[in-house]
């Protein structure tokens, strides 16, 4: 394989018209130059011409700037498409693992080209270190249907495979809801995963239509929409979903909070308890800065609040 200067006109669209690989732009490459090899470009030389396997964006940019030629790695005709894809994937793997969407697109291409199961499995094993089962293949192929903005988010956040699969498992209306949330509130990966998982589990647990859940959850946001920051919006959304997913825990927590409000705590004292209630007990946090704080705490502990604190222990 050599680096060759190829006329852009000789390059033909690939059969699938799909971009198989996610192309990173070299941040140091701010000047397009057709005679320099600044960005990796892989072309497969076929009987019909040169097919782009990697470097769509760069070629397109050069072309838009009036460039006529491109420096590229050219995989010769003697190499099959299977080998060519292996070469490109090997090259990418030097800097990062293949993204799940890339694996999915390649599996789809293999299916379109009617490649043998053995070839598919070999490629899959090489790049994922997993055995390709029918179920696993189906889960990968489902990633192709995700909105490209979700692909982008998952790649940017370096999401693990399980998060990709979880996203693809969500029905389309739920994915749209999540996508809106990403656009508006930019959640962290863990928040994104928690919200997606809880939404999916609410659907399964309550056996309701995704449209119904989406409508109900959207309503929550509309009601609170006035003058709230994206981060507040995200928190409201997250906690509403959490409450819906764990209704009994929510009732228990509300009951406790209601009782806590009846206890006249000194301003420097707080009560904390384990959020999942697995341990009985609570922590009394008291901040003592002055003798007066100490006096107030002593009075509080010796007051009628004692029975409240005992009762709190019982209902925790």
């Amino acid at each position: 394989m050599q680096i060759k200067k190829i006329a852009i006109e000789q390059i033909i669209p690939s059969q699938s018209q799909e971009r198989l690989f996610v192309e990173e732009i070299n941040p140091d490459c701010n000047k397009l130059n057709e005679s320099l090899f600044l960005q990796p470009v892989f072309l497969h030389h076929t009987c019909d011409g040169f097919i782009i396997l990697y470097g769509f964006n760069y070629i397109s940019d050069i072309y838009k700037c009036g460039g006529k030629n491109i420096q590229a790695f050219v995989i010769p005709k003697s190499q099959s498409l299977f080998s060519a894809l292996n070469i490109v994937a090997d090259f990418i793997r030097r800097s990062r693992p293949l993204w799940p969407i890339e694996i999915a697109r390649i599996l789809q291409l293999f299916n379109q080209q009617q490649f043998s199961n053995a070839k598919k499995s070999a490629f899959f094993k090489k790049f994922t270190e997993k055995d390709l089962t029918r179920t696993l293949e189906e889960r990968y192929l489902a990633l192709i249907g995700l909105n490209p903005l979700l692909h982008k988010f998952l790649i940017e956040k370096k999401a693990p495979l399980k998060t990709w699969f979880l996203t693809a498992e969500c029905p389309p209306v739920i994915r749209d809801l999540i996508l809106n949330l990403i656009t508006e509130c930019q959640p962290s990966l863990s928040t994104f995963e928690e919200i997606s998982r809880n939404l999916l589990e609410i659907l399964r647990r309550e056996n309701i239509a995704p449209e119904q859940l989406t409508a109900e959850m959207s309503q929550v946001l509309i009601e609170k929409a006035e003058k709230i920051q994206p981060s507040q919006k995200l928190e409201i959304f997250r906690s509403k979903i959490q409450e819906r997913r764990f209704p009994l825990m929510t009732i228990h927590r509300e009951r406790l909070n209601n009782f806590l409000q009846t206890i006249q705590l000194p301003s420097a004292v707080e009560i904390e308890f384990n959020p999942n209630f697995e341990e009985r007990g609570y922590r009394l946090k008291a901040e003592i800065r002055t003798p007066n704080d100490l006096r107030k705490l002593t009075e509080f502990l010796n007051s009628a609040a004692q029975s409240d604190l005992k009762h709190l222990l019982e209902i925790l």
């Binding site: 589990e201 399964r204 647990r205 209704p247 825990m249 999942n276 697995e278 341990e279």
Partner: peptide, 12 residues
Amino acid sequence: SRLPYGELIRGQ
């Protein structure tokens, strides 16, 4: 199975 979707928490 609906079992995995119960109100399960992580115990001690």
